[in-house]
């Protein structure tokens, strides 16, 4: 159990990203007419992407096959890059940079995805290293 705990960190960080983006660091609220602002779609996309990546990171923690572990980490690394780019680059956000989507959601997503990317790189290196040692 003690050995598996560090492997769960990436999944926990992804989960934190999803929870954060849906609560404290959410995008702008609903408009007066009941419709959502542009950035709401970016928020949902980040949550979906984050949820999928959390599941992959969790799977990777329980896998013993080193090559598969490295491959899953490579996928979460790509996921980190895509999620980083989602708010503002791949998906449009609101007009004013003083709005929540720019002041809270985007920086939070960017910081968290940099962390997940570093964890994925660490995961790939660890997987490769263990493979070499076991030879």
């Amino acid at each position: 159990m003690k050995k598996i705990l560090p492997s769960l960190i990436p999944a926990l960080v992804w989960l934190l990203l999803v929870i954060g983006v849906l609560t404290v660091f959410s995008a702008c609220g609903m408009k007066d007419d009941g419709t959502w602002m542009k950035c709401h779609e970016a928020q949902n996309a980040v949550a979906v992407c984050g949820g999928m990546m959390a599941a992959l990171a969790l799977l990777s923690a329980f896998l013993n096959k080193k090559l598969l572990k490295a491959a899953l980490n490579a996928v979460t690394l790509a996921g980190s890059i895509v999620t980083f780019l989602l708010p503002g680059s791949l998906m449009p956000m609101c007009m004013m940079q003083t709005m929540r989507c720019f002041t809270a959601m985007q920086p939070f997503v960017r910081i968290m995805t940099v962390v997940t990317a570093l964890l994925s790189i660490w995961g790939i290196i660890s997987a490769i290293r263990i493979r070499n040692e076991s030879r």
Partner: peptide
């Protein structure tokens, strides 16, 4: 108010 984001400029 702009259509996209409820902001006045």
């Amino acid at each position: 108010k702009a259509g996209c984001c409820s902001a006045r400029l």
